[in-house]
């Protein structure tokens, strides 16, 4: 069993309290990898220390016509 599957099983059972079979865990981790990689790459290219989630609504409020 690879490290990623062991990690997924530990997250499911010990952190979240769910049980999945290994086949489903492998599917989930494939999906999570794609999502995590996309966000991590976008974050590395754009985010700085001072970025905060609430800035989004400020942009909407002040970037109108």
């Amino acid at each position: 069993m690879d490290d990623k599957l062991l990690l997924a099983r530990a997250i499911a059972q010990r952190l979240q309290g769910f049980r999945y079979d290994d086949a489903r865990l492998a599917e989930i981790m494939t999906e999570v990898d794609v999502l995590n990689d996309a966000v991590r790459e976008a974050a590395a290219a754009r985010l700085t220390f001072d970025d905060e989630p609430a800035a989004f609504r400020s942009v909407l409020e002040w970037r109108d016509r």
């Binding site: 966000v39 991590r40 976008a42 974050a43 754009r46 985010l47 970025d51 905060e52 989630p53 800035a55 989004f56 400020s58 942009v59 909407l60 970037r63």
Partner: peptide, 12 residues
């Protein structure tokens, strides 16, 4: 959280 922080950059 990073996905939320990115939204301001995405829209700009």
């Amino acid at each position: 959280i990073d996905a939320l922080r990115l939204r301001a950059h995405f829209v700009s």
